[in-house]
């Protein structure tokens, strides 16, 4: 069962996505901001991280850069979740070291396809 870390500050988004992913059979851990996300990723091993980009404390881009700088987490696939409103988010996310990105609101089948593709690569 793949272990997923969901870093998301919005409670409803976090609740929705975690519940839907769990229904699809993923084990989901949750972080509320960028700093907590980095700490959790370093201490526990995750198969994939879903990272919101607009986060308090440290934002998703910075968190991703920190994870990529850490040997333990540098190979963990990260999918950036961005709001459509922010043009250029995708480019910046890929630049920061994300493996893929998806826009909110989440279209579950599309996100699942991306997750499966990345999980398949690492296994």
């Amino acid at each position: 069962m793949p272990k997923i870390l969901l870093v998301e500050d919005n409670e409803m988004n976090r609740d929705m996505l975690s519940r839907r992913l769990e229904r699809k059979g993923f084990e989901v851990a949750m972080a509320f901001d960028g700093r907590q996300g980095v700490e959790m990723a370093k201490s526990d091993g995750y198969d994939l991280i879903l990272m919101d980009m607009s986060l308090p404390e440290i934002d998703g881009w910075e968190a991703t850069r920190q994870l990529r700088a850490e040997p333990k987490t540098q190979a963990v696939p990260i999918i950036a979740l961005t709001a459509h409103a922010m043009a250029g988010d995708r480019e910046r996310a890929l630049e920061a070291g994300c493996d893929d990105y998806d826009t909110k609101p989440i279209e579950l089948p599309r996100l699942l396809a991306k997750m499966e593709s990345l999980l398949g690569k690492t296994e």
Partner: peptide, 14 residues
């Protein structure tokens, strides 16, 4: 606007 919309879309889909 998008934040509450996300909830509407997401929860209705769920």
């Amino acid at each position: 606007l998008r934040t509450p919309l996300n909830a509407i879309i997401g929860y209705s889909e769920m």
